[in-house]
Amino acid sequence: MSYFLEQVLNGLSYGLVLSLIAAGFAIVFTSTGVLNFAHGSVVLLGAYLVAVLHDTIGFWPAVLVGLAGAAVVGVAINALLVRNLADPNPGTAAILMLGVDIVLLTELTRRIGNQVLTLGAPWGASVVRLGDVTLPTGRVLAAGVTVVAFGALWYLFSRTDLGVGMRAAAADGPTASLMGIRLSRTAATGWALAGILAAVAGIFLTSFPAPGVAPTVALSAFAAIPAWVLGGFDSVPGAVVGGLLIGLTSALVTGYEAELEPFLGSGFGEVAPYVVMIVVLLVRPSGLLGSKEAVRV
């Protein structure tokens, strides 16, 4: 039983980290209509900045720089590239983002080399024991920080002018600008938020139980794509639910691989998130919480 509980908690905490990334996808998508395939390298960038700076300026200042750096890069991608796109259709923007991803990732890979850079996180490899259940401290912290982050997002989007303005701009940009809402500002805010969320996720994805910053971390963002899609492309709560579902699924399928192998074959844990995504989309084509507009009949 404690094993089951441990896998569940592991899955949920990992799922929360995925949901940070998925929420970033969703926020950029709603605020600028861009499928941000460069998100993975922004995740890596945030963690990389912390890894190279923690020695000289200390871990927490490095975290601030990491978050800020990821936010600035997001804003810059939007301001320099997305906004100047001659043909502003989603397909072109998505391909542009793939290009940005390759450039960023190649540069980061070159800098990281074949090293595994440690993050210098103060929680190190410590663990928290609750009865029989052992959880890495980093994971417990990740869950806490993620919950706080989503609380802050909820507050922003439902209780502040900026957040309501962002939602209005996402729903209908031209109309929102008739209310005096500057679309360039809401878009920049969206990209900055996504960058910050990505960096937070990057930090937790590269600290214990993961060893450190290696280029493969950028691939973790792809693990968040099913979470984003099944939550509904444009829904932050959907991203949270999607992340939890994906995290839980992969933890349980992997944790019970020995028992499941006769039916599913080995290595199903890697495929399971996509299977879940496809099943969800078959039942609900717009995702779990994606906008099926509130329509009056």
Binding site: Y14, T206, T254, G255
Partner: peptide, 23 residues
């Protein structure tokens, strides 16, 4: 043998490790 397949994107092996420890 308790075999566990992963991909290079799997950078956190908590679930695998738990399963190994459990076995």
């Amino acid at each position: 043998i308790l075999a566990q397949e992963i991909t290079p994107a799997t950078t956190d092996l908590s679930a695998q490790a738990s399963a190994l420890a459990q076995a």
